[in-house]
């Protein structure tokens, strides 16, 4: 069996460097079994380090989501992301926020951040978000309303 290529390209020949690199990345970011021969502890440390770095990137795109989760941010993100390859910090945070909303565990700050994003952008969960075609006055109103709600909610800034 060779590592699947999500782009739909031809799978790399078994045992080739391309195949082995694909298996290694899948083990590190997509929850696949580690390729044979690698020492488990260093690989686990690398997987954890990648998740920490990714959590930091998502928090930069979604500061209120991360702040709303507070001390639970790192564990919540790691649990959600462990077997999900990254779509970039913006989309990862968006997908996580929607998952938490479905579970009913999205904190209020994160809910406000998500609401503003969803009002301004169209995101189908598959392709990069695209800005909605709204009259400039509507865009401004959404941003102003969000700011007012944040002030009332004592956002941490």
């Amino acid at each position: 069996m060779t590592a699947a290529d999500p782009r739909g390209g031809a799978p790399a020949a078994p045992g080739s460097l391309a195949d082995r690199q694909a298996r290694l990345v899948a083990a590190l970011v997509a929850g696949a079994a580690p390729p044979p021969g690698f020492a488990p502890a260093p690989l686990a440390a690398a997987r954890a380090a990648l998740l920490r770095k990714r959590a930091g990137e998502v928090a930069r795109h979604w500061p209120l989501l991360a702040a709303g989760l507070g001390a639970r941010w790192s564990a919540t993100f790691a649990e959600w992301a462990a077997d999900r390859p990254t779509g970039g910090g913006l989309r990862d945070g968006w997908d996580l926020a929607r998952t938490l909303r479905t579970r009913g565990t999205l904190p209020p700050l994160g809910a406000r951040e998500l609401a503003v994003r969803e009002a301004l952008f169209r995101y189908d969960g598959q392709r990069p978000p695209r800005r909605r075609r709204l009259p400039a006055v509507t865009t401004l109103a959404i941003q102003l309303a969000a700011r007012l709600r944040l002030v009332k909610g004592r956002a941490p800034f």
């Binding site: 590592a3 460097l17 290694l24 990345v25």
Partner: peptide, 17 residues
Amino acid sequence: AFVRAGGLEAGHLLPLP
């Protein structure tokens, strides 16, 4: 280093054999 393979982004620099 390599940073992606098989259509997946690793998100960081990975070592080569």
